[in-house]
Design a protein around this nucleic acid. Structure first.
Lengths: 147, 147
DNA sequence: TCTTGACCTCGACTTAGCTTGAGGTTGTAC
DNA sequence: GTACAACCTCAAGCTAAGTCGAGGTCAAGA
């Protein structure tokens, strides 16, 4: 028991804080690829702790499982990820965070305008034309808010 | 047609950019409370444009329908919300945004530490102890990441 | 008056991200 | 060598936030 080379699903759950069922679900989605014991039980690499921890972080940032899978796809399943691997992914994640912060700051700025102007009723309000909802359905004003 | 006092669901959909089915769904969730025409059709107040626009904004901030409902619960259904109403809610929303930005900045700072240190493998890494996952299940280290 | 688009209800379906349960097997500790 | 916790598969269920379709009604213009 001293030189454990692999982890059972229960041990992995304890180490990551995930439930056993969630880990099985992540396997199904391709986020981890355990091998099997002679009796058919899952056996995980210690590096899978890192992989799943990464999943948890990425989820906090709002990435979907599919997006996370794409990030992780760049890591080999068979070997322990190197520092370079993680650095590359971490930098990609940082861009995601920066973008989300920037978007929230834009929203905050618009909201500040509203607080001062009795907004949510004014045609000039920018909050109702956030980047992705503008002009989706042909011409003419939509989402304008003038009472 | 010039002095319309109420809106049909279709008109409200056109004004907010929402689908008719989404508006019915929001009614079911208590976000709007239309009255009915003699024939049983929904009739909305013009102030419901504001209510639903607010819902759209709040959703962009990541609030659930339940959370939005709680914010809106402070507004009377029967009368047009005043500027003071909206200012109060807008200020509450600003706090939500600020909190979310602050949380993302903390995550970014931790990630920056990781990029430099070959992290995701070091015991000292803070990313694996994000605020809400610590010590949830009794004593002993969890979510530590040391390989 | 009649047509037709907009409206009605209700139930089923969707995607994401899991959990829960039934019924059966493995592996480890005594 | 046996008990029993931990594991297995597979199917069904759950929440959120809606969409879609069937079958039927309302309302406004020609």
């Amino acid at each position: 028991m001293t030189e454990t080379k692999s982890l059972t699903i229960g041990a992995l759950a304890a180490r990551t804080g995930l439930s056993v069922s969630a880990i099985r679900f992540y396997e199904e989605k391709g986020l981890v690829e355990p091998f099997r014991s002679s009796g058919g039980q899952r056996r995980f690499l210690r590096s899978d702790i890192r992989r799943l921890s990464f999943v948890l972080i990425a989820q906090q940032l709002g990435l979907t499982i599919g997006e996370i899978e794409r990030q992780l796809a760049s890591l080999p399943h068979g070997r322990t990820p190197t520092q370079a691997d993680w650095t590359r992914i971490s930098k990609a994640m940082r861009k995601v965070i920066d973008a989300r912060i920037a978007q929230l700051e834009r929203t905050r700025d618009r909201l500040d305008g509203c607080i001062g102007c009795g907004c949510l009723s004014l045609k000039k309000c920018q909050l109702y034309n956030p980047e992705d909802r503008v002009g989706l359905k042909g011409p003419g004003p939509r989402l304008v808010l003038e009472d």
